[in-house]
Design a protein around this nucleic acid. Structure first.
Lengths: 180, 180
DNA sequence: ACCTGAACACCGTTCAAGT
DNA sequence: ACCTGAACACCGTTCAAGT
C-alpha cells in the first residue's frame, strides 16, 4: 500500500467520523501524525483528494449485475449507485460535487443507456429515462444523508431502502408506458 | 427596509456573483462597507443567514396554481420548486443543505400530499409519490446547477426545462398506473 | 441601533530546507 | 521519497468599546 493510498484511506475514515464539512486538510494531517504541508506531496490539492475519494467510492463498489430484463437492470444500477453513496458519510454530496469526468463513469453511463435502448426506447427516450433515474437516485440519497445521522440504524436503512425501491418502481412504470 | 433585510439582500446578490462556496461572511462585510463582526448584530451565525436566504427563496416565489387535475398540480408544484431554486446561483444546494423546518414548508407539503390523496392514492401512496417527485426535482436541479454555469443561457435553460418536464411526465405516468 | 478594533482558533497552500 | 518549519492569505466568531 503506497503512502498515497494510506493518506486516501485516512481521508475516507475521517469522512465517516466528522462529515464532509469538517473534513479539513489540517485534521487529516493531524490524524496521520504529519504537518499539513506534507499532504501536498501526495495530492496536488484538496480537490484532487476529494476526487480520488469519489473514485474509490465508485471503484470499490461490487460489479453491477448485467442479468435480467431492462427493468431489473435499472433496479440493479440504481441500487448500486445508492449503495455506493451510502458506504460513506455524505457520500451522495461528495459524489455530485466532486465527480470528475472519467472514462469508467462514461462507459457505465453508455452501458446503462444501451440497456434502455435494447428495451425498445429510441435514443432521446433512453437518455431521458437514464437521466431521470439518475436524478432520482441522487436527489433521494442526498436528502436522506442530509437529514439522517450517520451511520443510519439498520431499521432506518431497511425502511429507506423500501421507500427507495417503491419510488423507483413508479419511474420504471413510467418508462414502461413510454414503451408502447 | 430594515438593516437586516439589506444584509440579506446583499448576501443574495453576493451568492449570484461568487457562488455558495465563496460566500463568506468577510466578503459580505466588505461588500456592505463594514467589519465582519458587525454582521452578528443582524444574524446569530452564518447558518442563520443561510437559512434566511432559503426562506427568502421560497417566500418570494409566485403562488403555486391550485387549478387543474392532480397531474397538472404535480407539474405546477414541481415546476415552482425548480424555478425557485434556479432564481439564484447554487439555489438547489442551498435549499437542501439549509432548509430549516418551518410551518410554511410543512403546510405546502401537506397540501401537495392532499392533492395526491384527492386523486385517489392512499396515504402511503401519496407520501411516496410526493417524495419521489421531490427527490427528482432536487436531484435534477442540483446536478444542473453543479455542471452548468450561472446564469445559464436562455437556450440552455429552455432545453433543460424540456428535459425536466419530460422526465416529470415519466413519473406522472408511473403515478397514474398506481391509481388503478 | 449599529459599528469598530482587536483578538481567537481556525482554513488551504507554498516552499526552502532537512533526513 | 517523505517530512518539517515557517510563512501567507484567508475563514467564522466574540466582545469591549465607541457613536
Amino acid at each position: 500500500m503506497s503512502r498515497r493510498d494510506e493518506v486516501l484511506q485516512a481521508a475516507l475514515d475521517l469522512l465517516d467520523e466528522v462529515g464532509l464539512d469538517a473534513l479539513t486538510t489540517r485534521r487529516l494531517a493531524e490524524r496521520l501524525g504529519v504537518r499539513p504541508g506534507a499532504l501536498y506531496r501526495h495530492f496536488d490539492s484538496k480537490r484532487a483528494l476529494l476526487e480520488a475519494m469519489v473514485q474509490h467510492l465508485l471503484t470499490s463498489a461490487p460489479e453491477t449485475q448485467v442479468a435480467g430484463d431492462w427493468a431489473q437492470q435499472v433496479r440493479a444500477v440504481a441500487g448500486a449507485g445508492r449503495a455506493a453513496m451510502l458506504t460513506r458519510r455524505d457520500g451522495a454530496r461528495l459524489l455530485v460535487s466532486h465527480l470528475a469526468p472519467s472514462e469508467a463513469a462514461r462507459a457505465g453511463w453508455e452501458r446503462f443507456v444501451g440497456v434502455l435502448r435494447g428495451a425498445g426506447l429510441d435514443e432521446p427516450g433512453a437518455l431521458l429515462a437514464a437521466d431521470t433515474v439518475f436524478s432520482y437516485v441522487n436527489g433521494f440519497t442526498i436528502e436522506e444523508q442530509t437529514r439522517d445521522g450517520f451511520p443510519q440504524t439498520a431499521e432506518r436503512r431497511a425502511w429507506r431502502d423500501q421507500v427507495f425501491q417503491a419510488g423507483l418502481e413508479l419511474i420504471v412504470a413510467g418508462i414502461r408506458t413510454s414503451l408502447s
